[in-house]
Design a protein around this nucleic acid. Structure first.
Lengths: 233, 233
DNA sequence: CGGTGTGAACCACTTCACAGCA
DNA sequence: TGCTGTGAAGTGGTTCACACCG
């Protein structure tokens, strides 16, 4: 589990919607599952089936879907294409969302090269790096976009109208880059650097730390080993 | 928040420990913060300070630390080095945990090259890929380890005694790789492929999907834009 | 029937507020 | 005095179980 919601005084007077955070985090998964079903020309699907394909309980699926004014048919199930449309709409992926990526190391490049982004509504408007070795080289093999120098950050954000930024730099640079992004107008940041960023409260941060994920796994692994053999459930 | 705890019938009769999942997810962060403080020769730290550096409330920090039989001093704070030792111990990072990585694309390479792993108790015992283009090339610039063919998977797991595996392949290959990992004895899997993996209940999965993280950010971004100006809190 | 939608119970985690102690 | 540790209250999310309906 990644951390970070705006923990404090958040919930800025939710007006219309009212979809729980936990549900939101699952919507993209449902979207993926439904898209795959649509691809396979499946017309109707039950909450049980969605559940199996998403790793969530069926009751939870129904509850989640009910939050978006559910369109299921009792005794039958959900109409795949119409449900997919609803989920997609709820996620706001009608338009192309411009994203700027800072750091052209492995992670930054991975994201920039990720084929799945356009179909999910994102467009990478720029990849920046401070290293002269990387600046000017193609963002991905066989891509026409080239890595730009960090000095172009404000220009890239402005020209691309980016409101979402990704920090894929070493930890030491992250806070500095973060401030420049915020200054340039970015309001949502996905941070891969292993540091806690300080930001104004109207900026949302999501933190993904690869080592942390491994450590959580390791903890359970350890407990499993320590928790003695006998007395298996 | 990443998904996936073993949701169902998990809680395999917890015996000694009893540390909540949410706390476990934060321990690595505290560890990082404490390590930085120790580096700076700070001797004593308060829950308030840890909170600020971790992006958590101070009450939450105290509660979390109390779960590991806390060693704070009332009216003073926590002794950095001893607390760090406790946290590290709780995370079970006394020993080197072998990890096998499948997929030598950007993400797999990023993880393999990540400097922070050894200090967190991990050792990458092998990076595998199916592509002949990648097999045999160095795992990272200036690393002596080389990418091995997927056919070596069982051998690498066995020789390295890996119990933790990382799947950094395209989605289509993930379930197949997953099954081979489990078959080979891996019990904990970190999955970067955008698919839900089916595994026996005694195998733990953690899912990290870069596009999903972006979509969650985008949702809030959208709501912010839609939720009209006036009536600001 | 069979599967959705949902009140109600349940559970896990967080926050409050303060007693207790160096 | 000041900060930890923790009962008690609060919050948010999940699961149960069943009424409802195509």
């Amino acid at each position: 589990m990644t951390l970070r919601h705006s923990p404090r005084e958040g919930s800025a007077r939710r007006i219309g919607g009212e979809i729980p955070d936990a549900t939101i985090a699952r919507l993209p998964v449902y979207q993926r599952v439904l898209a795959a079903l649509a691809e396979s020309h499946v017309v109707i699907v039950s909450s049980e089936e969605i559940a199996a394909a998403s790793g969530v309980s069926s009751a939870n699926v129904r509850r989640d879907l009910s939050h978006l004014g559910s369109q299921g048919t009792r005794g039958v199930g959900y109409h795949v294409s119409s449900l997919l449309a609803h989920v997609t709409q709820a996620l706001g992926i009608s338009s192309e969302r411009p994203v700027v990526i800072v750091g052209a190391g492995h992670i930054g490049t991975a994201l920039a090269a990720y084929q799945g982004l356009p179909s999910r509504g994102f467009r990478v408007v720029g990849v920046l790096d401070i290293s002269v070795d990387r600046v000017g080289s193609p963002v991905a093999d066989s891509a026409q976009m080239r890595v730009r120098p960090l000095t172009d950050l404000e220009a890239v954000v402005r020209e691309g109208s980016a409101r979402i930024g990704v920090i894929a730099t070493p930890g030491a640079a992250a806070q500095y880059v973060c401030e420049r992004l915020v200054q340039a107008g970015v309001r949502s940041i996905l941070n891969f650097a292993p540091v806690t960023l300080a930001v104004p409260q109207d900026v949302e941060i999501r933190q993904v730390d690869l080592a942390v994920e491994l450590q959580i796994l390791a903890f359970h692994e350890q407990r499993r080993t320590v928790t003695i053999p006998e007395c298996s459930a």
